[in-house]
Design a protein around this nucleic acid. Structure first.
Lengths: 344, 344
DNA sequence: TTGAAAGCGCTAACAA
DNA sequence: TTGTTAGCGCTTTCAA
């Protein structure tokens, strides 16, 4: 019932508080007979230690926070689960929440976790540089692990290699003859967006092709934004219309696909499409969608291990930056550039 | 940093511990001057109350657990988010975890939450009747809200009306001339499975059609199971093959679609498909998939409110069973039954 | 190996 | 309105 305390256990077992505590915490120096008695008492009474009391005494909560934009997005949910697998194992419990990319919500949640005295935090901030956000992180008092955010300072970062992923995707499209490739991506103040833009530029440079800046749309990572951005450019004149679209955010493929469908464009005959992160949708769409993907389990496991290192203070002082590779999975959504772009 | 205590605040403000505590807890009877002093001290020192200590003192943790099979499944993730919205508002923090439908994991997690002294729990158990699971729930000492599980006892249940949803889906297929409709669903010991089977039978009875029990496949809710079950029956003789498949689980549409694709069957010419719960995949597949859907936000909000009622003891003693309606969204994945089923 | 006792940070009852 | 104090359940010295 949760009302049995260690006192009750000690009394039942006929030992002192201290001995009961030692048994519960597996301290070696306890007589076998007493140990057995205490275990029997625990069993009989149904004693369950109170974590709040333990936390207070030990100064450690056994809780780790994890803040992502939206854990409902499959690839982020998968990341969270992978983190949880490792942290469960280590005896920690995860406090999961979605920031919805809203600064004030992020600030609130940071406060919550602070009150909760979590032992560590894994997060993807809405901004790497915003003053309030940075300040509020800095007085947190527990280690932070940034996931897919390249933050200046001493906190570790686990990053996905979006630059290389996008470079490969763009090179592939370029090799198919595309010259007007739209990159829809998120807030350019954050790593996933500017890293992808860098890859986009790199690929063009390598091919000796000038980049048209109007083809880079960095707004928000919301799924809705992908729909809006791709819709608007698809409605322009033939000469300014792209022949290929890269959904440069984990949540953007649905929006891009909707925009394309709404205009009756055929994939890949009229327009080529590449997604970021794999999904059932990408695999089962007609045609299946070519994607830049990565192993989110690996990302999750790595993040969990890095934060544990910090908590146990077994990590070097200096910041660690781990970059996880991406892979271009070619499926049926890209074809040769149409001679006349758009509605064939 | 988390090392400033209420004592430091009291000293800094030149008041007693008690007064500082009163200010923090918004107790009215504090002199305005002192109140201001305390606030100033809090500000200056960056004091953040320690929840563990508060919890211990108050006997309430301010935490609520939520256990679903897998919060990575979009519609479950959405449910969790909806719950979180309400509970955030009420000042609670959610402890989210996936049971993976494994009994031992569920037992472990129940223990975790018990140690944590959560104030309440929202869950979808792997079984409504398993002895160990039932026993371990009963000695929990805090209220439970069952989500989509029809559990005997005094705990409230929020249920989705799968019976009516499936009845409508089957009637619709029957009206299109289908006579061999496959229902793939999960563990028949749980409500979502047996409720759907009931709806399946009801629809057949109403149409005066005999049910072929081999067309009801209740195994596991895993996505993989849907692939296996539908694959195996699609490989049988024409006479035993279904002309329509209902993916009777929130996670089953991908598996069904994969099985159908792998055999080169056209939807809806060769075979009709209906999914359960809406998704990007259902909306954007070619053709878009007809689904039984429900408002998971409503489900989440309702669940959150019911558990809060219990925690605040403002609910009636008796068990409450809330049934949430479903809606059949007709899209392009169902057509008239082919005269000769299967590969045209 | 064990028991006694201090105290983690906080709230609330009591007395002033 | 305020200060003092007991104690929430536990771990961990310190002595024995």
């Amino acid at each position: 019932v949760g009302f049995v305390t260690i006192k009750d256990v000690a009394k039942e077992a006929g030992v002192s508080l201290g001995t009961a505590s030692r048994v519960i915490n597996n301290v070696a120096s306890v007589d076998a007979k007493n140990r057995a008695r205490v275990h029997a008492a625990i069993e009989k009474l149904g004693f369950i230690p109170n974590r709040s009391a333990q936390s207070m005494r030990k100064g450690l909560s056994g809780e780790i926070g994890i803040l992502v934009r939206d854990f409902t997005i499959p690839v982020l949910g998968g990341f969270v689960r992978a983190v949880q697998t490792v942290l469960d194992e280590a005896g920690y419990i995860l406090l999961i929440s979605s920031t919805e990319n809203r600064k004030n919500r992020e600030l609130d949640l940071l406060g919550q976790l602070s009150r909760r005295r979590v032992d560590g935090l894994i997060m993807t901030s809405a901004s790497e540089t915003d003053d309030d956000l940075v300040a509020s992180r800095e007085r947190l008092g527990f280690p932070i692990l940034f996931f897919d955010r390249d933050v200046h300072g001493s906190s570790d970062c686990v990053l996905i290699d979006h630059t290389e992923g996008t470079r490969q995707a763009v090179s592939y499209l370029l090799s198919l003859g595309h010259r007007r490739i739209l990159l829809v991506t998120g807030n350019t103040e954050t790593y996933p967006a500017y890293a992808r833009i860098r890859g986009y530029v790199l690929a063009h440079e390598a091919a000796g092709i000038t980049v048209d800046p109007t083809l880079i749309r960095g707004g928000s990572f919301e799924s809705h934004s992908a729909l809006v951005e791709s819709s608007s450019i698809l409605d322009t004149a033939t000469s300014t219309r792209p022949t290929a679209i890269i959904a440069g955010g984990i949540d953007m493929l649905p929006g891009v696909l909707k925009a394309v469908r709404a205009r009756g464009l055929r994939i890949p005959e009229d327009i080529s499409v590449i997604g970021n992160s794999d999904s059932d949708l990408a695999m089962l769409a007609t045609p299946p969608v070519t994607v830049v993907k990565w192993d989110y389990r690996e990302v999750g496991h790595t993040s969990a291990h890095l934060i544990l290192d910090r908590i146990y203070k077994r990590a070097p002082e200096r910041q660690r930056r781990i970059v996880i590779p991406t892979e271009l999975v070619i499926r049926g959504s890209c074809g040769p550039a149409p001679t006349q772009p758009g509605r064939g």
